[in-house]
C-alpha cells in the first residue's frame, strides 16, 4: 500500500520558537511518541507538517472528536456484493505503511477510544485488530504524535494518566511578540507594522484568557485577520470578523475587545 498521497510536496512555513525541531528529531529517531501541548492556533499542526516534510515521511492526520470510536481509528468490516471485507482505518494504515500519525486534539476523543494506541506507544509497537483477530507489527518508520490543549480541558475531558505517561512532550506557546509579528506578516502578506498591531491586539485578548475568555486570540486568527485586510476589509472590521466575534458571544466582553482593538490601532 502506498502512502505517497500523504507526503507533503512543498515545505510548510514554520518559524521555530526555540529548539523544538532538534527535540522532535531526537524523539523521532528514538521512536519516542510525542505529545505537543499548547493553546489553540499556536502552530502545533503546522509544526508537525513541517517536521514530516523535513524528515521526508508521509503524515496521516486524524482530527479527534467525541463521536470517534476505536473502529474509526483501526478499521472495520464493510459490506460489498461478495460479503464483508476489512478496511483499515487511518491509524492502521500508518502503522502498516510507516508514516507519522498525528492525532490532533486527542482529548476530544473518548477515553475508551484512546486506549487503542497504548500497545503502539510502548516497547511492543503493535496494533491489535480485535475484530479481525490480527496483530499488526508497526512499520519501522511509524511514529505517533498527539496534540493536547491543556487550556480548556475540564476534569471530564482529560487524558488518562496511563495515556499521558507514554509520551514525551514539547510545550508550545505563542511566539514572542516580535517573532509572532514576523510570522503574521509572512503568512498573511501584510506589512510588519500592521502585523505588530495585530499581535498587540492578540496580547490584549490573551490577558483575558481565564477571565472571561477560554483562550485569547491565536496566531492563526491573526493571520486570518491579516488576510482579510489584504482583501480590502478595513482593519477594525477584519479584527471584528476574525478575532472579536469568533472569540465570544458575551456582550460586555465583545464591547471590551472592540475597545481594545481600537485602542491598539
Amino acid at each position: 500500500m502506498s502512502l505517497d498521497q500523504f507526503r507533503l510536496s512543498a515545505e510548510p512555513f514554520y518559524a521555530p520558537l526555540s529548539n523544538e525541531i532538534v527535540r522532535f528529531e531526537a524523539a523521532y529517531h528514538e521512536r519516542v511518541p510525542l505529545m505537543l501541548k499548547g493553546p489553540t492556533g499556536c502552530g502545533k499542526t503546522r509544526f508537525v507538517e513541517h517536521m514530516a516534510y523535513r524528515l521526508g515521511q508521509p503524515l496521516i492526520t486524524i482530527a479527534c472528536h467525541e463521536d470517534m470510536t476505536a473502529a474509526d481509528l483501526v478499521g472495520r468490516y464493510l459490506l460489498d456484493s461478495d460479503g464483508t471485507h476489512w478496511k483499515d482505518g487511518p491509524l492502521t494504515e500508518a502503522v502498516r505503511g510507516g508514516a507519522i500519525c498525528y492525532l490532533d486534539e486527542i482529548v476530544e476523543a473518548r477515553q475508551d477510544t484512546t486506549v487503542v494506541i497504548h500497545p503502539l506507544t510502548d516497547e511492543r509497537r503493535v496494533l491489535p485488530l480485535e475484530k479481525k483477530n490480527e496483530l499488526v507489527e508497526a512499520h519501522e518508520a511509524f511514529f505517533l504524535v498527539i496534540s493536547y490543549n491543556p487550556g480548556y480541558q475540564s476534569a471530564v475531558k482529560d487524558l488518562k494518566e496511563s495515556t499521558k505517561q507514554r509520551f514525551a512532550a514539547i510545550d508550545f506557546t505563542y511566539a514572542e511578540p516580535e517573532r509572532e509579528a514576523d510570522i503574521v506578516a509572512e503568512e498573511a502578506g501584510i506589512d510588519r507594522s500592521l502585523a505588530g498591531k495585530l499581535v498587540k491586539i492578540a496580547a490584549t485578548s490573551r490577558n483575558l484568557s481565564g477571565r472571561g475568555l477560554d483562550e485569547g486570540a491565536s496566531t492563526r486568527t491573526l493571520i486570518r485577520a491579516g488576510r482579510l485586510i489584504v482583501r480590502g476589509i478595513p482593519v477594525a472590521e477584519a479584527c471584528d470578523m476574525a478575532i472579536v466575534v469568533p472569540l465570544t458571544d458575551d456582550h460586555d466582553l465583545r464591547g471590551a475587545l472592540r475597545s481594545a482593538v481600537s485602542a491598539c490601532l
Partner: peptide, 8 residues
Amino acid sequence: RLMHLTRA
C-alpha cells in the same frame, strides 16, 4: 465591559 477592557 470596563473590567474586561482594563484586564485586556
